[in-house]
């Protein structure tokens, strides 16, 4: 048994592992970084920690989103540092059986770039579970420097 946090981007329902989730907060304007990748919105100061904020819609290839105060930034612990993911809305905390998770279909895609770890059906709706490591893999970021060492 494991717990997921489900959320929405457009009409799509997605999910991440709740244990990787550090915090959920409302969107606030970010500070853009020069020469950053297109899906990186900039950086955000979270109680002294500067973390990169990823436009998940753009990262998934579904087009840039236009964030508002009603958008939500999910702060995830990926590897040894936090990342912010911009999503449209957080849906729920769901408890699923790991056996129910199915692998995504391999359909002519580069396996290294497959961001979906698995697919599970919750209350009749198909939910894609994101592979957070791969999501942040292509995100070159400065070394995490604690502002208050």
């Amino acid at each position: 048994m494991r717990q997921l946090i489900t959320f929405r981007i457009g009409a799509q329902s997605l999910a991440v592992d709740i244990m990787a989730t550090r915090e959920i907060r409302a969107w606030s304007p970010t500070t853009p970084l020069p020469h950053a990748a297109g899906f990186v919105r900039g950086v955000l100061d979270l109680r002294g920690i500067v973390l990169p904020v990823i436009d998940l819609s753009a990262r998934l290839g579904w087009g840039d989103c236009d964030p508002t105060p009603r958008h939500v930034v999910m702060v995830m612990q990926i590897g040894d540092r936090p990342y912010g993911l911009i999503v449209d809305a957080v849906s729920d905390i769901a408890t699923i059986d790991s056996a129910d998770v199915q692998a995504p279909p391999e359909l002519g895609r580069d396996g290294d770039h497959d961001l979906v770890k698995g697919i599970v059906t919750i209350q009749g709706e198909m939910v894609m579970i994101l592979d957070l490591d791969r999501l942040a893999g292509d995100c070159p970021l400065p070394e995490e420097t604690p502002l208050a060492a």
Binding site: Q3, I5, I18, E23, I24, R25, P69, V90, I93
Partner: peptide, 29 residues
């Protein structure tokens, strides 16, 4: 609506914290 939105986020964070707490956090969840 904004308050409800914030409350929802707070509740979600509480849920996340409860999940991390394991069995001890179930009531809180």
């Amino acid at each position: 609506d904004g308050i409800a939105f914030q409350t929802n986020l707070l509740a979600l964070n509480a849920g996340v914290e409860a999940a991390r707490a394991g069995d001890a956090g179930k009531g809180f969840a």
